[in-house]
Design a protein around this nucleic acid. Structure first.
Length: 820
RNA sequence: GGGCGAGUGGCGAAAUUGGUAGACGCACCAGAUUUAGGAUCUGGCGCAGUGAUGUGUAUGGGUUCGAGUCCCUUCUCGCCCACCA
């Protein structure tokens, strides 16, 4: 028996246990049905779910349930991105053990996810901080290493003093650490890198294949990869025989306008290029640049600084002798680290030349040229010897060719993408499985010795170095080649590596022989629908694409893009700004579950905005959804003894019943197409409400109810709403003695012919303005419609005394009379 | 500075993709029920006007029988990147 009122608290827990016990959401690897892989970005186990999680996972879960009902074998897994700083910070601040802290959080959040009613196959759970997972992260690293995609080099790196670790370029936001928000400085360290730059071109090219991704994400990735076509020009140093400075330029056409050269403070030949007289000031400048944090550099944006080195180059085009300067507006790891300066046609060079009183030579002329600012528009070459008079686009080619023919240049494609720095001087990550032997050098750990386990005898309170270095048992080991004494690599891997392959692991999560079998990974992937936050548009998605392509080249899998369709959901806001603890505008999912139930939370979070847009949480909105579910529930509670799951609808029905039947068919059609088309759940919810309103109207006169028709409407509504109100629909379905779970039942089908209206409202327009609305039957001929429109009393005054030019007819909809 | 996206009632938003603008909901107003409140049910609700009607999708223009939707102008907001030569 159903209660007379809706009490989600009495319903929901019961079905969580039932689904667990019956393995309702277990996904078989073998099935007659086509596969569908619905994936949410897995959470970091920070302690508790927040509303962003609720939104993300509800969206994916509704998709998974819909696909299951429409005949797919759906993989909908969940896991934990569980390495990273917060666990270690908890260890430092509260003396907790990072592992325990993390596993406790996972425990709690897993319960919350179950309470949220996710249809996840928990047998495939993947936890990146567990040995059975990071063993394979390490194994994959070794494969990358063996394929030349992992290497170590000394490099100036972004250093976060607070986290005492290195950060990838992608993790420096506005000169600050992406995690702790403190200022980032530069430091020279020997670091591990992955050679993502080898894949720059293919990562860019294949963006075109991703038709299921939003253009915004693709543009962000393309900008990040930053391909540009240009020319390398090599300049002889006047004072030093045999020394050249190569530069990268996208404007070889302006070569005749070069008046000086700039090298980055970290430029490799800078000491050779500095004369004795200038040594002191150059060293001071370089020292300053080193100390200056990223944020200082940004805040000093466009204020140019620099000092001359004392040496000069010879411009091979003009023979002009130009001074070489050091300035921090040149970036050491882009291009060659040196820039040719053409102040007349580059804003940065212009500012610099003005400040230090360097010459400015115009070499391009065109409309709008002014001598008091840099002219960067296309134009015609002047003051450029044999190239004068040439269009500048043409000159780019010709000048590059000239340089090539004369041995001092060539064309070059340049990317902004840098290699991926993966070393972290932290404890809570997957150890990089490398050992250093005095005799044999750096050697990867043998497969049979994996995983390299994290030590437990560490002191987390050490400052300025990795806690791993305090472990006695970890560091000392033997060489896998010679068996002699060796030392382990103490760096752990960036957690983005763990998250670059987790979606592959789900395909074969309990495999203890390999990260996954080729057969299963090829069966389940690529992911059909990936859902997550826009904040991962660059980092995670680019890294994952890189991993997929690299693993494909190694023969571990056969597809080249991991995610076919990507849905980036908007943020959850409260009072117009992002929910955050510091603002104190958070809403705790636990409280919503306790007060209104998970079904209400699910319904509300998908109801008000389309998934891609930001969503403003409001307490009134939650209550509105709760009331709606109460309203739905009451229908089933009231008629529970009259509803039949197997109804038969007779032919001779009154208009009222036919109207309701039509509404039901329309609802099926609309809801189905709205889910299939971009997951427009907000309008799906509107349709739930409209259908519910129609049913309420149908039962208003209690003496005039056809219970077969009512059953049809209610049973259909129940299935339509079941992907969202997962608990309530199950409760009602099983109370009505349905077989199995409602979540195993097929999606309702509609009959197109039954969605059609017999009656229409004809709109009569004169010159496009509405003058009358006429109720009539559908399917009338154009002549009849015109006649109807002409006879309209309301329309006549607007036609009388005027000439009818023509009449435009939209069948069953509009007659537009055009008069003069 | 560059790139992308968006501007529709008091609010969140719909609009079969060029064909009745504001579906559905929140808030609000009125009525029914109730001792009262809550809940529930019924009706109303862009703006101006008693009314017929006029007017209305940031702005100004254009194309069209017809524009929220297409094209151009200007403005505003959001996000991402940003000294990348």
């Amino acid at each position: 028996m159903l209660n007379s009122e809706y009490y989600p608290q009495k319903i929901e827990k019961k079905w969580v246990e039932y689904w667990d016990k019956n393995k309702t959401y277990k996904t078989p690897d073998i099935s007659d049905k086509p596969k569908y892989y619905a994936l949410s970005m897995f959470p970091y186990p920070s302690g508790k779910l927040h509303m962003g999680h609720v939104r993300n996972y509800t969206i994916t879960d509704v998709i998974a349930r819909f696909k299951r009902a429409t005949g797919y074998n759906v993989l909908h897994p969940m896991g934990w991105d569980s390495f990273g700083m917060p666990a270690e910070n908890a260890a430092i601040q509260h003396g907790a053990n990072p592992k325990e802290w993390t596993l406790n959080n996972i425990d709690y959040m897993k319960k919350q996810l179950k309470m949220l009613g996710l249809s996840v196959d928990w047998d495939r759970e993947a936890t990146t901080c567990k040995e059975d997972y990071y063993k394979w992260t390490q194994w994959l690293f070794i494969q990358l290493y063996k394929n030349g995609l992992a290497y170590k080099k000394e490099a100036p790196v972004n250093w976060c003093e607070k986290c005492s670790t290195v950060l990838a370029n992608e993790q420096v936001i506005d000169g600050k650490c992406w995690r702790c928000d403190s200022v980032v400085t530069k430091k020279n360290l020997s670091q591990w890198f992955l050679k993502i730059t080898d894949y720059a071109e293919i990562l860019l090219e294949d963006l075109d294949k991703l038709t299921g991704w939003g253009d915004n994400v693709k543009t962000m990735q393309a900008n990040w990869i930053g391909k540009s076509y240009g020319t390398i020009l090599k300049f002889k140093v006047k004072e030093i025989e045999g020394l050249e400075i190569p530069v990268f330029t996208t404007r070889p056409d302006t070569s005749y306008g070069i008046t000086y050269l700039v090298v980055a403070p970290e430029y490799k030949d800078i000491e050779k290029l500095t004369t004795q007289e200038n040594k002191e000031q150059v060293e001071k400048y370089r020292e300053n640049a080193k100390k200056m944090s990223e944020i200082d550099r940004l805040s000093n944006e466009r204020i140019k600084t620099g000092v001359p080195l004392g040496t000069h180059i010879i411009n091979p085009f003009t023979g002009r002798i130009c001074p070489v300067w050091v300035a921090d507006y040149a970036i050491v790891d882009y291009g060659t680290g040196a820039v040719m300066a053409v102040p007349a046609h580059d804003e940065r060079d212009f500012d610099f030349a003005k400040k230090f009183d360097l010459p400015i030579i115009q070499v391009i002329d065109g409309e709008g040229y002014k001598s008091d600012c840099a002219f960067v528009e296309p134009g015609v070459l002047v003051n450029s010897g044999e190239f004068s008079g040439m269009n500048n686009e043409e000159a780019k080619e010709k000048i590059t060719k000239y340089a090539q023919d004369n041995g001092f240049g060539y064309s070059k494609v340049q990317y902004r993408l840098r290699d991926w720095l993966i070393s972290r001087q932290r404890y809570w990550g997957a150890p990089i499985p490398i050992v250093y032997c005095d005799k044999c050098g750096a050697q990867p750990v043998r497969d049979e010795d994996l995983p390299v386990k994290l030590p437990t005898d560490v002191d987390f309170s050490v400052q300025g170095k990795s806690p791993i270095l305090t472990s006695k048992t970890f560091m000392e080991t033997t060489c896998p080649i010679c068996g002699g004494k060796a030392v382990r690599e103490s760096d752990t891997m960036d957690t983005f590596i763990c998250s670059s392959w987790y979606y592959m692991r789900y395909a074969d999560a309990r495999n203890d022989k390999a990260p996954f079998s080729k057969e299963l990974v090829n069966k389940w992937l690529p992911v059909n629908q990936y859902v997550g936050g826009i904040e991962h548009a660059i980092l995670h998605l680019l890294y994952s694409r890189f991993f997929t392509k690299a693993l494909k080249n190694m023969g571990l899998l056969d597809f080249d893009e991991p995610f076919t369709n990507l849905l980036t959901q908007g943020m959850v806001l409260k009072d117009g700004s992002k929910m955050s603890k510091s603002k104190g505008n958070t809403v705790d999912p636990d409280e919503i579950f306790a007060n209104f139930g998970a079904d209400t939370a699910r319904l509300f979070i998908i109801s008000d905005s389309p998934p891609a847009r930001d969503f403003d949480w409001s307490d009134a909105g939650v209550e509105g959804c709760y009331k709606f579910l109460c309203r739905v529930y009451r229908l089933y509670s009231k008629y529970q003894n009259k509803i039949k799951l197997n109804y038969t609808i007779e032919d001779n029905l009154d208009k009222k019943s036919l109207d309701l039947i039509r509404e039901v068919h329309i609802a099926i059609k609309k809801i189905t197409s709205d889910i299939e088309n971009e997951f427009q759940f907000n309008t799906v919810v509107s349709k739930y409400r409209e259908l519910t309103n129609s049913i309420y109207e149908y039962i208003r006169d209690e003496n005039d109810i056809n219970y077969e028709v009512l059953s049809f409407a209610l049973v259909t509504l129940l299935k339509l709403i079941s992907p969202v109100a997962v608990f309530m629909s199950e409760e009602i379905y099983q109370t009505l003695n349905g077989i199995g779970s409602i979540h195993e039942q097929p999606w309702p089908k509609y009959d197109e012919s039954k969605t059609l209206q017999n009656n229409i409202t004809l709109i009569v327009q004169v010159n496009g303005k509405i003058r009358d609305k006429i109720e009539t039957i559908s399917g009338k001929s154009n002549e009849d419609l015109t006649k109807l429109a002409m006879n309209s009393e309301k329309t006549k005054p607007f036609i009388e005394g005027k000439t009818i030019v023509k009449t435009i007819i939209v069948p069953n909809k509009i007659v537009n009379i055009v008069v003069k």
